[in-house]
Design a protein around this nucleic acid. Structure first.
Length: 973
DNA sequence: GAGTTTGAAACT
DNA sequence: CAGTTTCAAACTC
């Protein structure tokens, strides 16, 4: 398709981006180890994310160079799973190669942190997630997947083929419904037809970058075919693996390495996907269990320093499970959409989501990571996508389209959706408490995030993209929707958060305004092509009023090419659907790169641009989280991030975003004559809560951030408890730590699970990462860690999906009021930003997210924590009480029991209890060298308690953190 | 269906 | 940061 040049460019860009951000962290062997060690394996879960990340959200995270680092981290994690990928990695990206070299022997390590890997990993995670979800609603989901796959393949084959080519060749061609058929591979020709040349150029720009990246690593175009055929140097192994081992192992590995898309392609090539899908249903449950097992394994792996071992273990285990998983993964992209539904989460058009998340949560978590990784390694992801697309051409066309398009965007959409979800009251029913409950929360949050609209969009987009863009089969879409929605929602939340964060990072670095201009311009030119008949649009509008019956959004953009926030679909992080009446739409899977670039740009400007507008204010009690997260989302508790600015509508019409979201106006609103039925400004309960929790000033800033976080994570957290903390706290964190946090993230990263991460965590608290304290504390930490683990597992669930959760935790820190903590938090700000400030995940979050931040900031407080992890926990508990935010965290902690042990840091209030947790976790790992080892130990312990979740969570957290960091960096105001 | 209103997003 | 313009949805006729 594209000339090798593009790929080379992309590679260069990727390298630059990656090198810039991730370089340090990634390069460091520590990271690799950490990533490898880190329970991350959650990779399993992570895979889910990939799709989205790769496509939608991922871009946000991944796109930015910073993201790359994250992606690497994520990759590492995932890489563990997919040992196979190692080869691939080595082949694919230079960066990867470096990492890979280490792992080559085992192939496990994939270390390849390289962006390339991360994407794969993400994909894998996605797959896993899908599996989990499927487990929830295995059969139906499976069927859907199968159907989708078949559909997508059959239908997509044409589309996807075209699309893939387009992407590679020139994104520019708008996927006009009419021309959808054209979308065909190289669309370039179509460009001429449509005159989309300009748009094409824009798309090309994006594509070129990706291609360049690909080229650099491997022939861009070849990627596609090459990957599949193994022709590509990078991919060869993958291709082989895929081909050779159509089974789970191969798939899983492939997924991990290459990402879901590639996996899908491979699987498709082998036609194993369908078979796998068929298997999935049964396996789904198993997979869930497997994932847990994997996690356990992972944890064990983490314990065992040897990456290879870990990977091997995971591989072996995964192999069995993976067979199912990988299969899923393959389909997953497409399936993901479906998967979500499978998860048993059902969304109502109203945005109410009821999830039975048990299995899903893990997936969600995983998803998160993937996203970040994907984004960070956007290039790699892109590559993957490209590869996929290319491969798709040969065999499975579907893969590329379906996943990419839907996923990334969906994440955002989910978040946004949540917001929009007006009212979206997410009621998550966690069949299982503890881990499950958390998961459920996450899922729910995810779901909530994806309001009906978003979900629909996601589903639709995915479906559409994958299979039937042109012809909407209501029945089909709907069926997919349910699944896709759920999946998308789940993904979207996690991804959204991550993405948002990641996006922030990227935007700044990558394409400044220029890209936008180019993209927009190109897009504009392309718009004409895409322009669907106005009639359709109108019809759509009529039908759904912007929302499909299902609640999917449909846009009618005419000038923005659906690449600006004006476009509901784009704003929601969802691809436009056939039903959309938009003209010259570039918000389509075919233009994934463009979309991602644009998103990045927008995020660069406003990191929160894609964050959920509506944030839950935490009045909610933790109980909600556990049992019924949904309740927490009551409109009254929710708030609009920015607040409205209504002057004439009195907040009584949908012009008002608050009203539209079924949330009351808050102090943040500038509306005049507010009569919001959901709650006038003054009346807004949240404000009061916030006041209690935090100072007003904090509240405002926090609120915004929190809103973002809560919107994304808040839902997940749904846990009422966290809300208070989350919202207020997160903001503070973000503020304080934003800049540093990003860096810290990168450095320390999310590797909470990994020893390093642990180290990082510790470092932050007391000393620098390398500080002696880590060593001292290790033992204690380990013990605490054991507790922590429990908590963590719980937290992980939250954390997985939610970097936000972490953020939430961090917010808690802020709340605590310790300046030091705050500082530390800032680094973790990403966390805060991500997390609604929910505390629950606190421990986990801290661990995962904080670690990075902590490391970076050698907070004196940290030392305190370091002093005694247990103490820290205790302090935390005590802190909880004092701090308003604590309420949230405490609840969570209470739930988890362990976490509560809060450690007071220095500050009297120091809600930062969470930090201690982090420290605990991190401590073990945090200490640089020893940290890792300790980290491993910790991991082991943790595993036992919540093997499945924790690993995933950790990985997710890590990814999220990474993404968050990147985001913060980029977004750092 | 066309036109107007509205407020967010984007731009300056 | 504020003001203006642009945009698309919401709304009305």
């Amino acid at each position: 398709m594209d000339s090798p040049e593009p790929s080379s460019k992309i590679n260069a860009t990727i390298n630059t981006t990656l090198s810039s951000d991730p370089g340090p962290a990634q390069d460091s062997p520590v990271f690799n180890y950490i990533s490898n060690l880190s329970p991350i394996q959650p990779v399993k879960g992570a895979p889910i994310v990939q799709d989205f990340s790769g496509l939608n959200s991922p871009p946000l995270l991944l796109t930015s160079p910073r993201i790359n680092t994250h992606s690497r981290s994520s990759l590492l994690k995932r890489s563990q799973f997919p040992k196979l990928s190692t080869e691939v990695f080595s082949g694919k990206n230079e960066d990867y190669n470096t990492a890979i070299t280490d792992s080559d022997g085992t192939g496990v390590f994939i270390s390849p942190l390289g962006s390339g890997l991360s994407p794969f990993v993400q994909k894998v995670s996605d797959n896993n997630i899908s599996v989990h979800e499927q487990s929830g609603t295995p059969i139906s989901c499976v069927d859907e997947f199968l159907v989708d796959v078949s559909n997508s393949e059959s239908g997509d084959s044409s589309n996807s083929n075209n699309k893939s080519p387009k992407v590679a060749d020139s994104i520019p061609q708008p996927p006009d419904s009419a021309e959808d058929s054209k979308v065909p591979v190289v669309s370039i020709p179509s460009k001429d037809e449509r005159k989309d040349e300009i748009p094409e150029d824009a798309a090309r720009v994006v594509v070129e970058q990706a291609e360049e990246d690909n080229k650099g690593k491997s022939p861009s175009n070849q990627k596609y075919t090459g990957v599949y055929s193994t022709s590509n140097p990078d991919l060869p192994s993958l291709g082989l693996c895929a081909k050779i081992v159509p089974g789970l192992d191969a798939h899983s590995s492939l997924h991990n390495h290459y990402g879901d898309r590639q996996m899908a392609q491979l699987s498709r090539a082998g036609h194993t996907v369908l078979d796998e899908a068929s298997n999935i249903p049964i396996k789904s449950l198993e997979t869930a269990g497997d994932c847990r097992d994997d996690n356990d394994k992972i944890s064990t792996m983490s314990i065992v320093p040897d990456d290879g071992i870990l990977q091997h273990d995971s591989q072996t285990k995964a192999s069995q499970h993976q067979s199912g998983i990988s299969r899923r993964c393959l389909q997953f992209e497409d399936a993901q959409q479906k998967m979500a539904p499978a998860s048993s989460s059902s969304q109502n058009a109203s945005g109410i989501v009821s999830c039975s998340i048990q299995p899903v949560s893990p997936a969600v978590i995983e998803v998160v990571e993937p996203v970040s990784s994907n984004r960070s390694s956007t290039t790699s992801n892109r590559r993957l996508t490209q590869l996929v697309s290319s491969s798709v051409n040969s065999e499975s066309l579907n893969v590329k389209v379906s996943k990419p398009s839907g996923i990334g965007l969906h994440l955002n959409s989910i978040v946004n959706g949540m917001e929009a979800g007006s009212g979206v009251t997410v009621s998550v029913k966690s069949t299982q408490r503890g881990n499950l409950s958390i998961r459920g929360k996450k899922l729910t949050s995810m779901m909530s995030c994806h309001p009906s609209k978003n979900l629909k969009n996601c589903l639709i987009s995915a479906n559409v993209v994958g299979s039937n863009l042109t012809s909407d089969n209501d029945g089909i879409h709907e069926s997919y929707r349910s699944d896709a929605e759920s999946a998308a929602a789940s993904l979207s939340h996690n991804n959204a958060k991550l993405l948002n964060d990641t996006v922030l990072l990227k935007p700044t670095e990558h394409t400044p305004s220029n890209k936008r201009k180019l993209n927009s311009e190109h897009i504009d030119s392309n718009m004409d092509y895409n322009q669907s008949s106005p009639q359709k649009k109108r019809q759509v509008k009529k039908i759904s009023d912007g929302n499909d019956g299902d609640g999917c959004k449909r846009c009618n953009c005419k000038k923005t090419k659906c690449l600006k926030l004006y476009c509901d679909c784009f704003a929601a992080g969802v691809y436009c659907v056939d039903s959309c009446t938009c003209q010259g739409c570039f918000n389509r899977p075919e233009y994934e790169d463009t979309v991602l670039d644009v998103r990045q740009q927008i995020q660069s400007r406003n990191p929160l641009a894609f964050a959920p507008k509506i944030v839950q204010h935490s009045t909610n009690s933790p109980a909600n989280i556990l049992g019924e997260g949904v309740a927490s989302f009551t409109p009254s508790s929710a708030r609009h991030k920015r607040g409205c600015n209504c002057k004439k509508s009195m907040c009584l019409k949908k012009y008002c975003e608050c009203y539209q979201a079924n949330v009351g106006c808050s102090s943040g609103c500038r509306c005049e004559g507010c009569k919001n039925v959901f709650g006038p400004k003054e009346e807004y309960g949240i404000d009061l809560v916030n006041k209690h929790c935090i100072t007003e000033s904090l509240e405002r800033s926090v609120e915004e951030e929190v809103e973002m976080v809560t919107a994304t994570s808040g839902l997940l957290q749904s846990g009422p408890i966290n809300q208070c903390n989350s919202t207020p706290l997160t903001p503070s964190f973000r503020r304080s730590n934003n800049v540093d946090a990003s860096k810290s993230w990168f450095t320390s990263g999310r590797y909470l699970s990994s020893p390093e991460s642990g180290q990082a965590d510790t470092a932050p608290y007391g000393l620098s990462p390398g500080s002696p304290r880590s060593s001292n504390n290790h033992d204690t930490h380990q013990e605490t860690i054991g507790d922590m683990l429990d908590l963590v597992t719980f937290d992980h669930e939250l954390s997985y999906g939610n970097a936000k959760l972490a953020n939430e935790i961090s917010p808690g820190f802020n709340v605590t009021g310790n300046m030091d903590d705050i500082l530390a938090l800032p680094k973790s700000q990403d966390w805060a930003s991500n997390s609604g400030g929910q505390l629950i995940p606190q421990t986990v979050h801290f661990q995962s997210t904080d670690p990075l931040s902590w490391r970076n900031s050698p907070m004196t407080h940290m030392t305190q924590f370091d002093g005694s992890g247990m103490n820290a926990l205790e302090l935390l508990d005590s802190d909880k009480k004092p701090y308003v935010l604590e309420d949230d965290t405490p609840e969570i902690l209470k739930d988890s029991s362990i976490p509560q042990i809060g450690v007071k840091v220095n500050s009297p209030n120091k809600k930062r209890v969470s930090p201690p947790y982090r420290h605990l976790n991190e401590i073990g790992s945090s200490s640089s060298g020893g940290g890792l080892k300790t980290g491993r130990k910790f991991i082991l312990r943790a595993v036992p308690s919540f093997p499945p979740l924790s690993p995933c969570i950790q990985s997710k957290n890590v990814a999220a953190h990474s993404t968050d960091n990147s985001e913060k960096d980029s977004s750092s105001k």
